[in-house]
């Protein structure tokens, strides 16, 4: 069981029998009032999205999904193909089902595909993924102003803020939960 304080973006819970994913989350609390957990939820079966606010006394069952280790193979238009490396079984997820994770999916990445009664519904990624920088403005040497940031485009097309010294062709580690830059990676 989860309590309200476990709620966060990406958590999957069971509501009215169906698996739901929290696609947006905000903790709000008036200074002298009660804690409120404001969620945007998506029904993982129907795709329907809606807002719901929970209180600290609310408890939740985890969504009864199975997780299966699968490798991401390729993307074809709005379909994402994953393969079970033992059985060679392939499944497809839509762009909507992949959600924000599409920003971090590179070929051959080990993932966990989520299944509900054998239907693929979504994908979980490692907390950190290493990605190549495809496009970056060159670093103006001497530009050493501490704390500056610049946007770069990763191999997935995702645009991310990084320190100014990151150049095209370098590999960086990205937190898949927050979408933020973590560190530079040496190959």
């Amino acid at each position: 069981m989860y309590t309200a304080s476990d709620l966060r973006k990406g958590l999957r819970i069971k509501l009215e029998g169906d698996p739901h994913i929290i696609v947006d989350f905000n903790f709000v609390k008036p200074g002298k009032g009660q804690a409120l957990y404001r969620c945007k939820l998506k029904n993982m079966l129907t795709g329907a999205q809606f807002d719901r606010t929970f209180r600290s006394v609310d408890v939740f069952e985890p969504a009864d999904l199975q997780e299966k280790k699968m490798q991401f193979l390729y993307r074809e238009e709005d379909k994402y193909c994953f393969m079970d490396n033992e059985t060679f079984e392939q499944v497809y997820l839509t762009e909507d089902q992949v959600g924000d994770m599409k920003n971090f999916l590179v070929e051959n990445l080990e993932t966990e595909v989520l299944l509900f009664e054998n239907r693929p519904l979504g994908v979980s990624l490692p907390n950190a993924v290493d990605l190549y920088v495809k496009v970056a403005e060159p670093w103006a040497k001497g530009d050493t102003v501490a704390g500056k940031t610049k946007p770069v485009t990763l191999e997935t097309g995702y645009v991310i803020q990084v320190p100014p010294f990151i150049e095209a062709g370098e590999k960086i580690r990205v937190d898949t939960r927050t979408g933020e830059y973590l560190t530079r990676v040496k190959d």
Binding site: A146, G147, K148, P163, Y181
Partner: peptide, 14 residues
């Protein structure tokens, strides 16, 4: 340029 803790460095102005 040493990377340091960029998440700390970039808060400098604030």
């Amino acid at each position: 340029m040493a990377e340091g803790d960029w998440h700390l460095t970039r808060k400098g102005a604030n």
